[in-house]
Write a protein that binds this DNA or RNA. Structure first.
Lengths: 166, 166
DNA sequence: TCACGTCAGTTCCGTTTTAGAACCAATGGA
DNA sequence: TCCATTGGTTCTAAAACGGAACTGACGTGA
């Protein structure tokens, strides 16, 4: 499979990865969530090659994840800001952060703690069902064909074994 | 920054990405969650080059995300299964899936629906605070230095503006 | 006015990574 | 013996990446 075909696959994971599934994009977005907005600042903080950065920012802008907002005229300068679509990637960042905290940290603990403003506790994210509120684990959901399936069918492995809970 | 340095950065996101942050790994893991376990099956379903697949499976096994389990002796054959560490990536998959459903789907809707076994509803994941249970949005948490920080400090952008809520 | 600095890129070149295809090795079966 | 199955490895060419230099529009200070 070629990389350019990914955004046309009938799979939301593949389509998401067509935007954030490369080496640098999520690190660029991490900086965005930390309120970094300017080209130079991305470059200095990430140590990314400039043309790769230019390419990622353009792709993210084209995809509607970032938008260019002018912050000075003469000379015209623009900064990159998260759109609503971009802000919506927060759960993805949070999931990766929590997984890294749990499985990739030093013995002493994670390098950065996140504190929930509302309740004041150091916290991580728990995934719950949007309908009943229960915690969602790895085998708590089944898959079925959706309206955008385009005459496709579910991958055999998803159905062959009845997708049993583990 | 070189790619091999990523797993030593004092950032859980960077460390997570050192494992799942490339073009193919999350697609391989998608298949794992769909109970695909054999080399040939991964190859056929993904259309991935065989040596790239071999490389990714080895890296995931070395990282403890997958394990090789023998399923036949003479000739010895092994299949790849998710470990606990691997199963713990489910929230990451779910976040990407939900984001793709919301922002990348066709007008008709997403290609695949997920139904919560326990309550029977088609559902998506909601991120909630592990301590107080409230829903977590993009600007609901502050960051602070953690025990594994190694004398580092928070990135300036995270503190410079007091990390205000938006 | 003229050198210098800032910001946001673009261009060039050499190294890595990837895609696609062919090849290899252990074993079992006809 | 020849073929099929499974799980890879090796080869070549194309694409992506890292690092450094260059460009261009403008401001500043001497």
């Amino acid at each position: 499979m070629r990389w350019e075909e990914l955004d046309r696959q009938p799979c939301s994971l593949a389509r998401s990865l067509s935007i954030v599934g490369d080496r640098w994009t999520l690190l660029v977005l991490r900086e965005c969530f930390l309120r970094v907005r300017r080209f130079e600042e991305f470059e200095q903080r990430l140590g990314i090659a400039r043309h790769v950065l230019a390419d990622r920012l353009k792709k993210l802008t084209d995809a509607g994840v970032l938008e260019k907002v002018p912050y000075r005229e003469r000379p015209r300068r623009e900064e990159y800001r998260l759109t609503e679509k971009g802000l919506d990637l927060y759960p993805v960042m949070l999931s990766l952060l929590d997984w890294g905290d749990k499985w990739m940290a030093e013995p002493e603990g994670p390098p950065v703690l996140r504190r929930h403003k509302a309740c004041g506790h150091v916290a991580h994210a728990v995934h719950t069902c949007s309908e009943c509120g229960e915690v969602l684990g790895a085998r708590d959901m089944t898959v079925e064909i959706g309206p955008g399936a385009k005459g496709g069918e579910l991958p055999p492995a998803a159905t062959a074994k009845g997708n049993p809970s583990k």
